[in-house]
Nucleic acid binder design. Sequence first.
DNA 1: GACCAGATTGTCT
DNA 2: GACAATCTGGTCA
Length: 189
Amino acid sequence: MKLGTKFYNRDAKVVAQDLLGCYLMTDLPEGKAIGKIVETEAYLSIGDLSSHSFRGLTKRNRTMFGPPGYAYVYFTYGMHYCVNVVTREKGVGEAVLIRALEPVEGIDIMKRRRGVMDIKNLCNGPAKLTQSLGINLTHNGYCINCGPIAILPKAEPVEVVTTTRIGIIKSSDLPLRFYIQGNPYISKR
DNA sequence: GACCAGATTGTCT
DNA sequence: GACAATCTGGTCA
């Protein structure tokens, strides 16, 4: 079973919760790397001042306004990449930011790419997991499950906790951050 | 463990 | 010209 357009073409806050427990995989020449999604955040198109899509379509965020089920990768703070999954129909501008993974496969590759030995420190942050999985700007706009980036369905149901988002100033009071209850691999702060 | 500053560049005002 | 959906390494306790 594969997660199709129907799965992604829903409210970002619904998709964000449903993605918890699913597996994010990259299959690059270096090798395969898989992690379980344990933390996400939803970014909406209306009333969400911190969403990149809030000010309308720009060169940078055009992927967010594309069809659902695509990877939106952006560059920030002069040195970091973050991955999102686009939700809703083309032109809406909603996405789910993937904030943390629990390493499952290809851990040696992740360690090499990160230069860190501690497993708990490989994917517990949005910029860390992109580095571990080898994701960069060239993957922006890729269709998920038709390229080197794939998302696999969850193996078992998970217990979801809802809180406010992290690392932003505007609209930081909205309850749009979700993570798996009790999982040791989430980012903290 | 908690708090603080620095890195570094694309993008928007 | 200012700032950003962040991380790391330092200091102090």
